[in-house]
Nucleic acid binder design. Structure first.
Length: 553
RNA sequence: UGCCCGAUAGUAUAAGGGUAGUACAACUGAUUUUGGUUCAGUAUGUCUUGGUUCGAAUCCAGGUCGGGCAACCA
């Protein structure tokens, strides 16, 4: 049991900090802004942050970074909590940056008193001009040298609602010539007469991210504040505030965010897909959201496994969505019960069978014998998949063809004797004979066949709607593709089979079940399903080497 | 043209001065009452140029390439 899994660079830092005695235990946090649903990229961050605390003994807070009331909403808070729990993690404490508004305001006052912050009357355009450019230093605001007393008065008046949105801001007084743009007197408070989802109308001044995040970390004694690469330039500011305020020295570490092929990961783009009707809501099974994946039938262990396999590093990456699908199949193969469902039926008449219903037994899961067996009715009228018959079979085709034999899974071997067609020449049914001695489990026929097909008895079949999903985008790297990302949407990403034929056992299972429809893929019950009308989502297909073989020719 | 971050098979990720490994993907084959699963195997990689060293993916220097940095967003 020497599974010596190598550490990622953040684990190395944590281990070093623990070993050196800098900390005796760690505290991390997952800090979403409640302005959208969580996606698989957040899952990576969740697994990292919660995983660290789990691995090294510590705790993780869930903290909502709710400093911008105009975009945030409790709907998102609720969905985020659901998703984190569903992924299998428990937070030590549920916190909100808005819990700290009074404290944060106090920090701002401290800065003013130290002469390190000032109220600026410049317009946003003027402030942008003052910033300079990455290659040119900025210039001081004409309001930069207001007295402490004047700043105190003005800032208090801002809080009291004396000014309109945008009329004044509070800025940190650092260095307009700094090479780091974020250190050029960043805005730390702005006026927004807006209703906040938690504090209501108590406040009309709100701190900026940079003046809330690090301080919130410090308040919570976060030891390792892990975020994505784009915050690297913010680190200097993060540390500057902590130092000037003399508060707990949380440290920020950055890793590369997840990018995945054939999908988008930004909340802005996901929101657009929802608002403009390209998908049916945040939990549409084609979305990269956690809730979408959940509805699609992805399991939490599979997503956790995926996050574990992709690793943590600092270089930009584009992960093959195939790896996620692999993890999903890997888990589902172990837990899904097998059922037979025919999507595109072709009728088969067994001419030498008397038509009486015969109950056959089949294993629920060959990977897990404890899953038991279920009964399947067999009779003289069956459906098989149209794909599973070829009048003129191609070379390596070993399904049904005139004169050929195949096994029906868990039933009998049949031979195709006659192809029946309508006036136009379409195949309407097949007449076959079955080999009574070839019954599954007690086969004395001595016949060997290469193909095994799934099937259902026509008169016992239950009806179901099946929704087949494909990738939402046609190009691998959507983020770097030419033009608007919506130009690359795959318009065939949803195919609905309104009336598939399923074996009766399927009607008696529960919503939590995961299925493998034999030779078709993994499926789960959709929330639209009712006892009168079953609706299934295809979670992921089975690996299909036959399709690959066909593509070659 | 300033500053910051990065560069290892197709895609990710290890190796922390001493045999370049693992996973997914690809390809061969075996097994199979799912063209699934499982098993065995094959091919493919250190951005570049110098330097240090007995020895460099690793340390140093220059270059190249990719990404980021100027929202009253987070």
């Amino acid at each position: 049991m020497s599974e010596e899994k190598s550490l990622n660079f953040i684990e190395e830092i944590v281990e070093a900090d623990l070993k050196s005695g800098k900390y005796s235990s760690i505290v991390t946090r997952f800090p979403p802004e409640p302005n959208g649903y969580l996606h698989i990229g957040h899952a990576k961050s969740i697994c990292l942050n919660f995983g660290l605390a789990l691995k090294y003994g510590g705790k993780t807070n869930l903290r909502f970074d709710d400093t911008n009331p105009v975009t945030e909403d409790t709907e998102y808070v609720d969905s985020i909590k659901d998703d984190v729990r569903w992924l299998g993690f428990e937070w030590a404490e549920e916190r909100y940056a808005s819990d700290y508004f009074e404290q944060l305001y106090g920090f701002a006052v401290q800065l003013i008193q130290k002469g390190l912050a000032y109220v600026d009357d410049s317009t946003s355009e003027e402030i942008a001009m003052q910033k300079g450019t990455p290659t040119q230093p900025g210039t001081n605001s004409p309001f930069r040298d207001r007295s402490v007393e004047e700043n105190m008065t003005l800032f208090a008046e801002m809080r009291d609602g004396k000014y309109k949105d945008g009329e004044k801001v509070l800025r940190a007084k650092i260095d307009m010539g700094h090479v780091n743009m974020h250190m050029r007197d960043p805005i730390i408070y702005r006026i927004k007469h807006a209703h906040h989802h938690r504090t209501g109308d108590t406040w009309c001044v709100y701190p900026m991210y940079d003046f809330a995040h690090g301080q919130s970390d410090a308040i919570e004694n976060i030891t390792h504040s892990v975020c994505t690469l784009e915050f690297i330039p913010h680190r200097a500011l993060y540390e500057w505030f902590i130092e000037q305020l003399g508060i707990f020295p949380s440290k920020q570490y950055e890793f590369a965010r997840l990018n995945m092929t054939y999908t988008v990961m930004s909340k802005r783009k996901l929101l657009q897909l929802v608002n403009e009707g390209f998908v049916n809501g945040w939990d549409d099974p084609r979305m990269s959201t956690i809730s979408g994946m959940r509805r699609r039938g992805y399991t939490a262990p599979a997503i956790r496994e995926f996050c574990d396999r992709i690793g943590i590093a600092k270089r930009d990456n584009l992960i093959d969505v195939g790896l996620l699908e692999f993890c999903v199949r890997e888990h589902l193969n172990k837990i899904a019960v097998r059922r037979m469902v025919v999507f595109d039926p072709l009728k088969v008449i067994i001419t030498n069978h008397n038509g009486e219903t015969e109950m056959l037994s089949s294993e629920n899961n060959p990977e897990d014998l404890n899953a038991g067996n279920r009964d399947i009715p067999f009779s003289n009228e069956l459906f098989i998949e149209k794909d599973d018959f070829m009048e003129v079979p191609s070379k390596k085709y070993f399904r049904l063809a005139p004169g050929q034999m195949v096994r029906l899974k868990s039933a009998y071997i049949i031979r195709c004797d006659e192809v029946v067609k309508d006036a136009v020449g379409n195949i309407t049914e097949l007449h076959c004979t079955y080999i009574p001695e070839s019954k599954s489990g007690s086969d004395t026929s001595g016949i060997n066949v290469k193909g095994t097909l799934h099937w259902v008895s026509a008169k016992h079949a239950v009806h179901a709607e099946v929704r087949l999903y494909d990738r939402l985008f046609k190009v691998e790297d959507v983020g770097n593709a030419e033009g608007d990302f919506k130009d690359h949407i795959n318009t065939d990403s949803l195919e609905v089979i309104p009336n598939a034929f399923a074996e009766p056992a399927l009607a008696m299972d529960s919503a939590e079940d995961r299925y493998q429809f034999l030779r078709k893929g993994y499926f789960c019950l959709d929330k639209d399903s009712t006892p009168e009308k079953l609706v299934f989502n295809r979670t992921v297909t089975l690996k299909d080497t036959w399709a690959k073989e066909q593509k070659k020719s």
